[in-house]
Write a protein that binds this DNA or RNA. Structure first.
Length: 489
RNA sequence: CGGGACGUAGCGCAGCCCGGUAGCGCACCUGAAUGGGGUUCAGGGGGUCGCGGGUUCAAAUCCCGCCGUCCCGACCA
């Protein structure tokens, strides 16, 4: 039945649409263990490109990769009071090994602060050993009550940076620097605009002094926390005796930071750019940037068209699909599937560009180039194909960011808003509301209770309005903070 | 753990009320034709009807129990 092939539209049911896109575009599949996720090659290819770009950015800012164990002694988690309170409820614990009950249970890392700072304590003696700038690519496990593909899975892949510094100010600078790296990555690569800012105490990381986040708006007008950066102060240093000798001979606890982004970003990509035909992948993250769909009837035509397709792929620099290739090209040589069916399939998978190539084109020394984002078709000469494709890809990257930014702008409210109106908005179409907050956690909690909306963060300067909100969204008293309110994933 | 829905082929579902040889669409396999926006025809493979018990000559269908999944809430990158 033709209806079976159609996606649920985003407007009809955003959640159903999201799940269908993730499953049908072969980003991921459900695993036998509930809450876990199998990331398929198409999805992993995107994650791999994210990793590569971020890894370069981390190295450029002086960080080195290392690897720490999956299993952490339970006692480690308990050394920092806030930390254990935050993570104990969602810990997965190993109690048996080698056929025997273990003397001490081992926790599967929900995050690696404890084991990393335990090791840092051994490595750091002097101020000369600082700063220590480490990153780890790893999987972590958090036993969440409810999961969603990519957005909240029991096990997820991430990157966690951990650093140690001699002073608070240096740690703070690092925390902010890495938040900026995240913003640059998310906007530059995922083409997903984010609002950076500081988390409130209620929302900050368990054990941190301060937490900063990148908040993005999804197409259902809900916020996605896409990355966080924490200034941990000396909390973990004190718990793990991470001390160093200062230049003047005294002993001080080090100052730590940690920061992470995860496979959740793939979900953010889908919910930022997907449309009613499926996924749209920003060119910089697309495992395949251009798919060639050959069109032919007779065997002679088939030979001719495929020969031309291979020649084109080779000239675009992607003959063997190595990463050194200039443009990542795939030729869809499958037999027995009509071109139209192939178009739908590659659109569903989000490949940015498609080149339709048939006997008529070859006779005219051209191909038909189709953009995934606009579905716009144009005939291009095969002589200048490389330049045209490269230009088109970078245009798409920019256009996708601009479109996402426009959409966010249209659903962000900066004018003073009565609380009743806010409630209605959160009950209906949602969006980001920039409004004052008196600083009282009771107001924050009441808003959450009544509307499910929370303070996503206290936005940084660049997002703020010229005229700051003057009163608290909830109680109307004088505002101490300018806050970004929204319902979140 | 509270509220709702549902378990029948890989996926999506019908059949159940009113018991009588297991069905449909998609996908898959074979063959032929087709091929510039989801091809058509013909043939084919595939199911302990979630599990256990009961009623009955006979249970996917009726009854009891259990298990599981999904959605809504509490938790969260």
């Amino acid at each position: 039945m033709a209806d079976d092939k159609k996606l649920t539209t985003r407007a009809a049911d955003f959640s159903a649409w999201y799940n269908e896109v993730v499953l049908r575009s072969e980003l991921a599949d459900y695993s036998p263990v509930k809450g876990c996720m199998v990331i398929r090659p198409n999805g992993y290819g995107i994650w791999e490109r994210m990793q590569r770009a971020l890894d370069d950015m981390f190295k450029a800012t002086g960080h080195q990769n290392a690897y720490f164990p999956l299993l952490i002694p339970e006692s480690f988690l308990k050394k920092e009071a806030e930390h254990v309170e935050g993570f104990a409820p969602e810990a997965a614990v190993v109690t048996h090994g080698g056929g025997k009950e273990l003397e001490e249970p081992l926790v599967i890392r929900p995050t690696s602060e404890t084991i990393i700072y335990h090791m840092f304590a051994k490595w750091v003696q002097s101020y000369r050993d600082l700063p220590l700038l480490i990153n780890q690519w790893a999987n972590v496990v958090r036993w969440e009550m409810r999961t969603r593909l990519f957005l909240r899975t029991t096990e997820f892949l991430w990157q966690e940076g951990h650093t140690a510094h001699a002073t608070h100010d240096e740690a703070e600078e690092e925390t902010r620097k890495m938040l900026g790296v995240y913003r640059d990555f998310m906007e530059g690569y995922i083409a997903m605009p984010v609002i950076t800012g500081q988390k409130t105490n209620a929302e900050k990381f368990a054990g941190a002094l301060r937490t900063y986040s990148c908040e993005a708006m999804m197409q259902d007008n809900k916020a996605l926390q896409a990355g966080t950066s924490h200034n941990l102060g000396q909390n973990f240093a004190k718990a793990f005796e991470l001390k160093f000798q200062t230049e003047s001979g005294g002993t001080e606890f080090a100052w730590n930071t940690s920061w992470g982004v995860s496979t959740r970003m793939v979900g953010g990509l889908v919910m930022t750019h997907g449309d009613d035909n499926g996924l749209r992948v920003p060119p910089l993250l697309a495992p395949i940037e251009l798919v060639i769909v050959p069109i032919y009837r007779k065997d002679e035509e088939r030979a001719e068209v495929l020969e031309a397709a291979h020649r084109i792929a080779k000239s675009l620099g992607a003959w063997d699909r190595r990463e050194t290739a200039r443009i990542r090209v795939h030729i869809d040589k499958r037999e027995g599937i009509k071109p139209g069916a192939k178009y739908y399939e590659w659109e569903l998978r989000g490949v940015p560009l498609r080149l339709e190539l048939g006997p008529r084109d070859i006779a005219a020394n051209q191909g038909v180039l189709v953009r995934r984002d606009t579905r716009e078709k144009k005939a291009v000469s095969l002589d200048t194909l490389g330049e045209d494709v490269a230009e088109c890809l970078s245009t798409m990257q920019r256009d996708m960011f601009a479109a996402a930014l426009d959409r966010r702008g249209a659903n962000t409210y900066r004018d003073p808003m009565p609380y009743d109106q806010f409630r209605q908005l959160m009950d209906g179409q949602g969006g980001f509301v920039y409004a004052g907050w008196c600083g009282d956690e009771a107001c924050e909690a009441a808003v959450k209770e009544e509307t499910k909306a929370t303070i996503r963060n206290i936005p940084d300067e660049e997002f703020r309005s010229v005229e700051a909100p003057t009163s608290c969204l909830k109680c109307g008293n004088d505002a101490k903070h300018e806050a970004l309110w929204a319902k979140a994933y």
